[in-house]
Design a protein around this nucleic acid. Structure first.
Lengths: 332, 332
DNA sequence: ACTTGAAATGTTACTTGTAACATACTGTTT
DNA sequence: AAACAGTATGTTACAAGTAACATTTCAAGT
């Protein structure tokens, strides 16, 4: 079974003794086609499982009604919510999403952006702020609008929607200190930019409280078992820890489990705080305290801005801070 | 900043006083282009961030070097591994992946398949076995090869790679009984086909052991908090439970946490077994016993079969069972 | 000097849907 | 009967790469 020569508008037109133009109209402005003709076309389309070839309209039309989205990971609830937010806007607007993932690697992002641009997407949403120069070059050349989602880079490529990770971190760690923690350690996995920003906020908060920041990191990407390992390492390296601030909930859960295993009581002996407020943290005993990131809102706002820019009506504001909040659990 | 009229091969050719055919060759078979010319083209491509328009080649070439992949969810480690497996094969072979997600909904799958087919992908990998008739129609019409990954449907659309969920379930529950469980309850979230198959296996194992199966289900999609809720419900409804078999690890973790909270000791008072063997289960105390699904292998095999079929060399075998194993934790 | 052949580049026609404009046909109004 | 509006459909040219074949160029072999 080879790839068949696919059915075309012309094939349908021939079968009905009309021209492909009428069939083309059937799809784009059906009310312009006589009801009888419409039904005859519909019948063939149904029976034969006809799907239009998108290529010619990519060529002849300026707008393709597609946007490209590059997320770093396919298994992170954070980006799932982000994409959900995006789709809630793009789908009713008749836009398709081409999705790609970069594995947190700027060179992979470059490859994926090139692929998306080869399909002449009308806009891009990226979830990272560090890009290769080739990526930047290609995007500039294409002239399409871009939203960088999640962070608030100092000089965005174009537009940015996100929150201030460093500040969220600063505030949260400050509150840990206010609640009595004196030796808070920062646990970090593979260092992407958001991890670094959160670390900065943590360090600042510690210095400002007259305390000394210390962190434990792993080059592996974050996971529950890495969280365990980091907690073990932290306990080995430092002997007066009374709190850990984790770059995300995966690590926090792992850390909390390790404490449980070693008889370290959370929060009495050890405060554990995470970032992102995933569902898992809510199911834990004790319930995890975590920074809530407005990821679905970020997706919605990003898509709205992008569609506005595509249709030519840009906001003068380029950067949108959607803030953050906190789920207060029982882990601090 | 509007979408610019994008740079074309012709533009580059004009700038160098050659024809676009030579520039086209530069991309497809660079060794056929004189070194000097090659370098002149390269310079422009680099400087201007040129990206080829894919549309014309979608039209003029039979093969597009792309495959479409539809996964049900963007936040499930299971499908992340599957896609990783797929890409490990397709990328070195020069194939791009167009990714879409269906949210476990056959009508959304239909929309996404239509979108992918409109780009004339050379093959499809789907992760579900229940499709709308329109989906089936469109795929049949296109004539491209399809792999259904994860399960082993009785009559696959085309090819299938996966494992026997019912059997894995049967064996695992049988082992729970052998270890002394007498009142095992099945916990299920939103009923997709795999959940149903696992339930069947569970029920069969219970009947075969002379025991009565009972289950607790929720229409919501699975999550850790749903796991807690289901465990609560199970304990309310049935008063002699000594084990739960969960349709996946999310539910199992939630269930285990609920037990912990209520002072029910796992595994002494209650055995908890999950499905998929995610990292989180390994970080739990007690470590979760779970069925290991060979998802990366499924991805690899699916991609291999698909690429083989695209290049015209099909295996006679249509269905591939990659088996399963078990991580034995401390939760049974 | 002449042939040969391989390397480099060019020419032409084709892919399929769509914008823009043109035409045919119907029934209604004056 | 002529004019007209409105609906339905048709005609033509075009988008940007590529397959297939054609041509040019130039050094090597006789």
């Amino acid at each position: 079974m080879n790839k068949k020569k696919s059915l075309t508008l012309q094939d349908i037109a021939d079968e009905l003794g009309i021209t492909k133009m009428t069939v083309s109209r059937y799809f784009r402005e059906p009310e312009r086609v006589a009801k009888a003709t419409r039904e005859r076309i519909a019948k063939i389309v149904e029976n034969q499982g006809f799907v239009q070839n998108r290529a010619p309209s990519l060529m002849s039309k300026a707008i393709t009604n597609t946007i490209g989205v590059v997320i770093p990971s396919l298994s992170n609830q954070v980006f799932a919510s982000l994409v959900e937010g995006i789709e809630s806007i793009t789908q009713p607007a008749g836009f398709d999403i081409l999705l790609a993932h970069s594995g947190y690697d700027a060179r992979v992002e470059e490859r994926k952006v090139a692929m998306l641009l080869s399909y002449r997407v009308d806009g891009l949403i990226l979830c990272e702020t560090s890009h290769t120069s080739k990526t930047i070059n290609m995007i500039k050349q294409s002239g399409i609008p871009v939203v960088e989602a999640m962070e608030l880079p100092e000089s965005p490529l174009d537009m940015a929607v996100g929150m201030d990770h460093q500040r969220a971190s600063y505030d949260t760690v400050s509150e840990m200190v206010r609640r009595g923690c004196r030796h808070v350690i920062y646990l970090a996995a593979r260092l992407d930019n958001r991890t670094r920003l959160r670390q900065k906020g943590y360090e600042q908060a510690m210095w400002d409280a007259g305390l000394t920041p210390s962190s434990v990191a792993t080059p592996f990407h974050s996971s529950f078992t890495q969280g365990q390992a980091l907690m073990r390492q932290a306990l080995n390296n430092y002997n007066k820890i009374d709190g850990v601030f984790c770059t995300n909930d995966d690590l926090a859960i792992g850390a909390m489990q390790y404490c449980l295993e070693k008889g370290i009581r959370v929060p009495y002996d050890m405060a554990v705080v995470g970032f992102n407020a995933l569902d898992i943290g809510q199911a834990m005993k004790p319930r995890l305290t975590s920074v809530v990131t407005p990821r679905e809102q970020i997706g919605i706002k990003s898509a709205e801005l992008l569609l506005a820019a595509i249709s030519g009506s840009r906001d003068t504001q380029r950067t949108f801070d959607l803030g953050y909040s906190l789920t207060e659990g029982k882990s601090w």
